[in-house]
Design a binder for these strands. Structure first.
Length: 458
RNA sequence: GUGGUCGUAGCUCAGUUGGUUAGAGCGAUAGAUUGUGGAUCUAUAGGUCGUGGGUUCAAGCCCCAUCUUCCACCCCA
């Protein structure tokens, strides 16, 4: 019998204790901020009905959904190849629908919308929730791109108020300053983008225009223009767009230029107005990070309708580590129209990679145990067990070495686990009642009374 | 999904035009020190060269397939 080499699926990862301690550091920081702003947690299942997920993320999104094969004889009752479906595409579509009815969730926003509709009568609106769970995408893995990763979502649904945009901006500011990550926060508004498309006379090409504009920083203005032409946008429209692509300078200047630009676009003016209000509030809030109004920011997800926001790390080359926006009618497709929501999502795994590369994790978080009792033998064990219970009652994480091995071995264990204090209780200490406490950092040690010891370890 | 790239000890990597028994550093283990870790010294262990085929007298090296990693596109956290 040949043993198989164990492995895990592409784009997934195991997490060691050292990694988990750090991951939890991120989750805790984010969760604490969410709580302070008055959000409550929910969880939803890893899998959803495929009908809930399909069609919500655009054509590309559908391809990236992990589908779950039905149980049982799922091939029963399926028509054979002769039944009129000649091309492979429609066959696959038909087959998929019949052999897979569930899929792994692609994000947390759509399941949240589904949740809100299903539980609408139990919820208090505006409903503020946070959700920290893994999501799955059948994407090709790359650095910072995984097939299983954690999102930390905060959303509020059931209010149009721009105060929530401001609140989410504050949350972003708090989270990244708590984690010590330097970021660029870009903010824009879908209505501004729609206004631009309208103003250049290509309203129906909104998506193509935004996708192209989003690449400006990466590929340069010529390629962007090429792409626009390729998508069938007229030379005249592209010409009109140039001032927007070159829009730079102070906020005030941007607003002036755009106001002029939007004389023919009601939507554009509305978007500008929203942007103005949000930025006005942020200006007065004394935030750590700067917010940059960037008309080129697009964000692919098609359900956004108002404010959109995206965060990138400044010191590490990585995709966006946080993003989100307002969606006016995400619950409409599930039968609850007129519910406006706004939310953002923190990418925990990318945040981890950024912090790791910039050495932002404090090394103190690695030490879980505060004190180790050295094991000298059965009599001493018995004695130490009581002290140990005492420490644990006081909330001091502590442990005893399981066997009376050579001191060297036990000290090495403490050293490698980053345990800052070692407590030695041998014959002498049992007689005097004063345990020897050793500080592993300085190497100093001295006999302490129980009270002293607790004080030292607390 | 399209095009490319990487894989050699636990980790980081050498390995010549194909040629005997595949190396180094770090780490690990044991000892130098029987109540003291980190530093130093000594010794030891550890590899089906990602996997499966093929070419060859001979493959870590060449060919094919496959898996994985990373990169570009697409898209995104």
């Amino acid at each position: 019998m040949s043993s198989q080499k164990p492995s895990i699926p592409k784009g997934t990862r195991d997490f060691s204790p050292a990694e988990m301690v750090r991951r939890n550091f991120i989750f805790d920081a984010i969760r604490n901020v969410f709580k302070v702003f008055g959000y409550l947690p929910i969880e939803t299942p890893a899998m959803e009905n495929l009908s809930t997920l399909m069609g919500k993320y655009g054509e590309e999104g559908d391809k990236l959904l992990f589908k779950i094969l039905n149980s049982g004889n799922y091939l029963d009752g399926l028509p054979d190849a002769e039944s009129g479906m000649r091309d492979a595409g429609s066959r696959i579509q038909y087959l998929t629908k019949h052999i897979a009815e569930k899929g792994l969730r692609y994000d947390l926003t759509v399941p949240f919308a589904r949740f809100v509709v299903q539980h609408q009568n139990e919820l208090v609106f505006p409903f503020k929730r946070y959700q920290i769970q893994p999501v799955w995408r059948a994407d090709r893995p790359q650095k910072g791109r995984y097939r299983e990763f954690f999102q930390c979502d905060v959303d509020v649904i059931g209010s149009n108020s721009l105060l929530y945009e401001v609140e989410l901006a504050q949350i972003i500011d708090s989270v990244f300053s708590a984690l010590g990550i330097k970021v660029l926060i870009r903010i824009n508004n879908r209505k501004v983008l729609a206004g631009i498309a309208e103003a250049i006379g290509a309203a129906e090409k909104l998506t193509d225009i935004t996708v192209a504009m989003d690449k400006l920083d990466k590929t340069g203005i010529d390629k962007v223009n090429d792409e626009l032409i390729e998508h069938g946008i007229s030379y005249e429209s592209v010409e009109k767009l140039q001032p927007i692509l070159n829009l730079e300078g102070k906020l005030k200047t941007k607003f002036e230029i755009l106001t002029e630009f939007f004389t023919t676009s009601e939507t554009g003016r509305k978007g500008l107005e929203e942007m103005h209000l949000v930025l006005q509030h942020l200006k007065e809030l004394d935030l750590v990070n700067k917010f940059d109004f960037d008309v080129k920011l697009a964000r692919g997800l098609s359900y956004y309708t108002g404010t959109i926001i995206e965060v990138k790390a400044l010191d590490v080359a990585m995709g966006s580590i946080c993003g989100g926006g307002r969606y006016d009618d995400l619950t409409g497709i599930f039968g609850l129209p007129g519910m406006s929501g706004v939310g953002i999502s923190f990418g925990a795994d990318r945040i981890y990679d950024v912090m790791n590369e910039s050495h932002l994790f404090p090394d103190t978080i690695l030490a879980s145990t505060r004190a180790l009792f050295i094991n000298f033998g059965t009599a001493e064990e018995k004695y130490c067990l009581k002290l140990l219970a005492n420490l644990r009652k006081k909330g001091i994480p502590s442990e005893i070495y399981p066997e009376p091995l050579k001191l060297k071995k036990q000290m090495e264990y403490a050293n490698r686990k980053n345990i800052p204090f070692v407590i030695l209780v041998g014959k002498d200490e049992m007689e005097s009642g004063l345990p020897t406490v050793k500080d592993m950092r300085s190497g100093e040690q001295r006999p302490c009374s129980i009270e002293e010891m607790i004080k030292l370890l607390s």
